[in-house]
Design a protein around this nucleic acid. Structure first.
Length: 278
DNA sequence: GCGACAG
DNA sequence: ATCTTGTCGC
């Protein structure tokens, strides 16, 4: 048991350490890392909290009266500088339910050496995001979003079934939900495909993303009457798709979930205001 | 071979 | 991701 875990850690360490110079070798290595981390992925609800209840349903539930209620939700995003693509600002915000007010925020202005390559976003963004999580855990543990983190990027809706939200969730050991603002084409999924399904009925705003192989990769959701554009929901870590969809729907003020929207807005602001110090 | 490809 | 003003509508 422990041997297996240690071997796994050693392999990961070996794979993670090298900052190679050959693109194809790197990508091969990155895929090994993704497959290794994927073995630790939990694809079902695995947490102790429960969703906030409405009065109507609050009546009979003698069982989980002791369970804590989902209270703090984290959101992470990274913004980039227009004229200096290596300069970026990572943000972590923590919102409190049910008011969705931001109660904590953390920023990091960094230079990223790893380029963006479709399918490997995590190797560019995850390190700085994990650093922000560590900062909160050390300095403001009360606000550490251990219950749930929203990630700007996909979960299992990914060529290897292991996108940024999964990557971050496994390494931080927190439940995560991945939100894509654009569709990553995987297993035959296309935007026209989704549009067709959604367009069929005007009041149908949620469709399951089933690939050509029959695998369910996530869901497309039109959350706001003001925008016809759907978002793409996929599970990250320690949560089921059904639960993820339910929470997304209760946490949207605009097109995308409020934690991600806030992280997006604030990381951009912070970058504009502090880019001169780099 | 060509095109597609989260942020 | 980012480049970018106005504009149509509630």
């Amino acid at each position: 048991m422990r041997d297996r875990s240690q071997n796994s850690d050693l392999l990961l360490e070996r794979l993670m350490e090298s900052t190679g110079d050959c693109e194809i070798e790197n990508q091969t290595k990155w895929i090994e890392v993704q497959n290794e981390l994927k073995q630790r992925l939990i694809a079902a609800d695995d947490f102790t909290w429960k969703l906030p209840k409405h009065e109507s349903e609050a009546a009979a539930d003698g069982n989980d009266e002791k369970k804590e209620v989902l209270k703090y939700v984290g959101g992470v995003d990274v913004s980039y500088c227009k004229d200096d693509p290596s300069l970026a600002c990572a943000a972590l915000v923590v919102l409190i339910l049910p008011t969705l007010q931001v109660v904590h925020q953390e920023y990091s202005l960094v230079r990223l050496g790893v380029p963006y390559i479709p399918g490997f976003l995590a190797f560019r963004e995850a390190p700085v995001l994990l650093q922000l999580l560590e900062k909160v855990k050390a300095n403001s543990p009360h606000f550490y979003p251990q219950q749930l983190i929203f990630v700007d990027g996909n979960g299992i809706l990914h060529p290897q079934g292991f996108g940024l939200a999964c990557h971050l969730g496994v390494l931080a050991d927190c439940p995560t939900i991945g939100i894509g603002k654009n569709l990553h084409h995987v297993d035959g999924l296309t935007l026209n495909n989704v549009k067709q399904l959604l367009g069929a009925k005007p009041d149908l705003n949620l469709v399951t993303l089933t690939g050509s192989s029959g695998i369910i990769w996530g869901a497309a959701l039109r959350s706001s009457p003001r925008s016809m554009r759907p978002m793409f929901i996929s599970t990250g870590h320690r949560i089921s798709l059904d639960t993820a969809i339910t929470i997304v729907q209760m946490i949207c003020r605009y097109r995308i979930p409020e934690p991600i929207r806030q992280a997006d807005i604030r990381s951009r602001e912070y970058l504009q205001k502090h880019r001169h110090v780099c």
